[in-house]
Amino acid sequence: MTAMENATRDGFSFDPGTTVMPVKCAGLVKVSFLLKLFAKGIEGVLVLGCHEGDCHYYNGSERCGQIVEETREILGLAGIPARRLGFSLIADSQGKELKRAVTGFGKQFKTVSRKKAIRRKSTAKGPAKSSSKKSTARSRRGVRARNK
């Protein structure tokens, strides 16, 4: 979350087609949750988590990696390219890294500047600023515009 704040402070703004969905810990993201996003017709999902070893809950980032792998496998069987599910681990301070990851991931989709929405949820542990960052999974979704 802090990384996101850092990035936005540096003047980074999300593509309007992106929705940010903060979660308490990247390890809490579920296969079903990711699959449901794809089932809704969303083009891509980027899962972001804390640096390996930085996890407040001990192994959230690793857990998240497994989940992403599993989901990619299922997507693969369903004929959806695995690259549409991105995964990066970024530390609090790495605002630029986040910017790079998001823009990089977004490049594969041509849907920029279509009807988009951003949803946002604050991290659970609000007050503590620096180390309270649990981990953030941000989802970047290119919403397919049907009437275009």
């Binding site: 079903s32 699959l35 449901k36 794809f38 089932a39 299922i74 997507l75 369903a78 959806i80």
Partner: peptide, 8 residues
Amino acid sequence: AIASLQLL
């Protein structure tokens, strides 16, 4: 969810 992917 897997099932609904198949309706895409």
